[in-house]
Amino acid sequence: MTKDKILQAPDMNVSAEERAAGGRKSISKEQVTKYLPYITLFSLVALISLYDPAFLKLENLLQTAQDISTLFIMALGMTFVIYIAGIDLSSQSVASMTTVIVALLLPSFGIGAALAAVIIGAVFGMASGLVHTRFKIASFIATLAVGGIAYATGQVVSGQRSTYMPADLREQSMGWMVGNTAGIPHEIFVALALLLIALFIERRTVFGRSLKAVGSGELAAVASGLKVTKIKVMTFALSGAFAAMAGVMLATRLSGGSPTMADQFLLPAIVAVLVGGTPLTGGVGGVLNTLIGALIVAVIRTSMTYLEVPAEAQQIFFGVVLIAAIALTIDRSKVKVVK
């Protein structure tokens, strides 16, 4: 390919409108923000595979995807809440609690235990939503408080001990979640199935469309007759249910539950949503963005392991990434007073 051709190519795709507006320098800030997550992901992958080409081995990529799926499921639920400009700080406590519940119920209910756990997670999420909307308490405080209740519930139910799943029962009821088919770990299938469900909810249901309205401008949504309170409660319930699913998968992978099992999940889950491109101010982004975000988190984690950064120090980094991601994505025209 000659140099001329490369230079010519963009011109052919530029619309009349853009040409009129001055043509070539048409990359707006919005476009950059929109593609930033993809650019970040690809640059990270490029960097790490330059450092160690073994990273690109299929086996290794699958391993990375498998390891992130639990976190990704939690982040999916979190996406809905952030999409309506709220936040859910109870996710990790709810997930921890459900690891205990599912491990305890497995012997009596089999796969029903997972269903029960998800329903309980949804109930806790709903409680957050109700406290948030009925009492008009900011969502981070409401979810922090409900998270405390979930945490204590996990402690009480487990008697402060780790609970184990009997191997045969686990294999029988939950085995399908952790096996391998054609070399692909089942966690990836489960995560993708849940992504499709979440995507369907977001794009193809009335509920999903109204989330966009609430996230873009809550007062306008109220004025145009949407039942915002109900939508919000449902959103938090959905987040609780996804957190519980993450808990179920975690418990299955580790063959047991403990009331502190998901303790390290909250920060990376929020980071995944934000670096994916769903800003804290809501209204844009969505679950597909969170897929990219979760992959970014996964690649960062893997590369830090390559660079032999100790697990503890990774936390420093995620704290910084969190702040950077918010700073880059937040829509400042929406917030008059930052508290």
């Binding site: 920060l267 704290g319 700073a327 917030v335 930052v338």
Partner: peptide
């Protein structure tokens, strides 16, 4: 950077 305090402090 005009970031809500609860998230800055959470990250910090």
């Amino acid at each position: 950077l005009k970031i809500p305090s609860f998230l800055v402090s959470l990250g910090i």
